[in-house]
Design a protein around this nucleic acid. Structure first.
Lengths: 109, 109
DNA sequence: TCCCTATTTCGACAATTGTCGAAATTCAGG
DNA sequence: CCTGAATTTCGACAATTGTCGAAATAGGGA
């Protein structure tokens, strides 16, 4: 993970529509969602969705799997974990930011 | 933390120049860096730096403190922690993404 | 083979972004 | 009050983005 990749992934998530897409995929769980289902839930033009989805796939944050004509999309957790790791590293490498009351896992102790 | 705030912060970090600015501030530690020092290290026009810095301050990722004519900039860790918490939450809320070999703390076990 | 459904590609468009240099502003010191 | 240094604001510019509808493509089933 380097600055260029990280910034590209952050940029991908930094658009409200794309973050919503990603969020929806996470909520959908391991089963994932077809592009059409995603479109129903989010309510944007299919072409727009396809455009955003391509960005998320290119950055590795989302994976796709064909089932006949249907494309199943899934959040790709390892990529997110690597990104979070990079951010945590950038944030905590030199400084002791133990003020983390926001982290889910409770890293302190 | 909601989707709108998160996406704005992610977008702020999603530009290579701004991520580099943030990274430099983190590396500078709690003492922070004046805008001029930042400019020397990064090598962009002062106006461009000011523009990016404003974005980072607006989103709460960076704080500034005046010392006479000098503006000291610092990475604001709580904001980053909240953002990481949001991402981790979005990623892990419903799914068991224990594949985290990238997280700094080692959440598994 | 022909059709139907799911998805992508193709223009097109307004809006935003990233960058710069020049000018304006702010603030302390003499 | 004037000077000098630090930073921001002001245009300006090309480049990218986000969005849409229409047309093209892909892939299976009758």
């Amino acid at each position: 993970m380097n600055l260029e990749i990280a910034s590209r992934q952050l940029e991908a998530l930094g658009n409200p529509t794309r973050l919503q897409i990603y969020r929806t995929l996470v909520r959908a769980g391991p089963a994932g969602l077809p592009v059409g289902g995603l479109q129903e839930r989010i309510g944007i033009a299919a072409s727009t969705l396809s455009h955003h989805l391509k960005r998320l796939v290119e950055t590795g944050l989302v994976t796709q799997e064909r089932h006949a004509t249907t494309l199943i999309c899934r959040a790709h957790y390892p990529a997110m974990n690597a990104l979070i790791g990079y951010l945590a590293d950038e944030c905590c490498a030199d400084a002791g930011c133990v003020t983390a009351d926001a982290a889910a896992g409770g890293v302190s102790t």
